[in-house]
């Protein structure tokens, strides 16, 4: 039972649940094997294992799973449908487990969260612990401890960033998008690199203090039911008065974003651009767009 190796793909929901997952398995005494940051080999493996029409983030995910194949006992692939009543996650997250199970011949470790049907995250983690041979109490303990450390670290990060948000003298740009796009080496990281080169302080839409999502989204949309997109829209509305510009990052082709981007672009009244990233290698167009965006913000600042 000791030293079970759990592979965690460094893609998609990893960027939201990294602390929870790692802490949970480590508290149980398992070894966590992480795939590396996305690189070209991973992307290419992913493209080969994916449907043509999948979004870039999904293709990247499949590459990470493939990388882990021979390096662990199980690969963790959760199935998340509903985290909040009357809301949903993108169908990709609902199908993720079945998809990977069908593509890869590998022991997949999963947990199911579908709040409307009574499947809570806690139940999911307990079932997962049991499958690995631990008792209910052991699993629950590990889950609770992991939850605590997740909360603590998130709060700490949010506090640090909010201090910088208030005190920095540099130009401030919010990178808005799904965390798996914002922090991926092939998507958001290359944008962040261009910004940091121009001495810009970068903030992320998934890092915030005391954000009332329902209140922020109320005047913008009453019908949006995508949990992650609601969070993104609310965070943008919250950051809008605090930053100099917003870069909205989308991986091509994203269903929920195609709807919510329209809402965002029409509701934001400070400089904003939408960068859509696909699997093409050349970033010339990307750099042109970012550079001119920075020029505009700097010019505006000078004339204020």
């Amino acid at each position: 039972m000791n030293n079970i190796k759990i592979g965690i793909p460094k893609a998609l929901l990893y960027y939201k649940y990294s602390i929870l997952w790692t802490a949970f398995f480590e508290k149980l005494g398992c070894t966590v094997v992480l795939s590396p940051d996305t690189n070209k080999d991973i992307l290419e493996m992913g493209i080969r294992k994916s449907l043509d029409e999948s979004c870039l983030a999904m293709k990247i995910y499949m590459g990470h799973v493939e990388y882990l194949m021979d390096k662990c006992d199980y690969v963790l692939v959760p199935r998340l449908k509903c985290l909040k009543k009357k809301e949903q996650l993108c169908t990709n997250f609902q199908a993720l487990y079945d998809l990977t199970q069908n593509v890869f011949d590998k022991q997949i470790l999963t947990y199911n969260v579908d709040l409307e049907k009574g499947f809570t995250e806690e139940k999911g983690f307990i079932a997962m612990g049991k499958r690995l041979g631990f008792s209910k109490v052991q699993a629950l303990n590990a889950y609770n401890l992991a939850k605590l450390s997740e909360e603590k670290q998130k709060k700490k990060k949010a506090k640090e960033r909010s201090v910088i948000l208030k005190t920095t003298k540099k130009l401030k740009i919010l990178l808005a998008g799904h965390p798996y796009n914002l922090y991926d080496d092939f998507i958001g990281k290359q944008i962040e690199a261009v910004l940091k080169n121009s001495d810009i302080e970068v903030f992320y839409s998934d890092v915030y203090q005391a954000l009332d999502i329902d209140k922020e989204i109320e005047p913008i949309s009453k019908s949006n039911y995508w949990t992650f997109n609601k969070e993104m829209i609310a965070s943008i509305a919250y950051h809008e008065p605090l930053v100099d510009g917003i870069i909205l990052i989308t991986s091509f082709p994203c269903g929920p974003d195609s709807l919510s981007n329209e809402m965002i672009l029409r509701n934001v009244h400070i400089p904003i651009i939408n960068l859509i990233i696909d699997e093409s290698d050349s970033n010339t167009g990307l750099i042109t767009r970012i550079e001119s965006f920075i020029d505009i913000i700097e010019e505006r600042k000078k004339h204020e």
Partner: peptide, 13 residues
């Protein structure tokens, strides 16, 4: 506006 660029957009993909 007033001789400075305030906004721009470009075609996407």
């Amino acid at each position: 506006e007033d001789g400075i660029v305030t906004d721009y957009a470009m075609n996407t993909l």
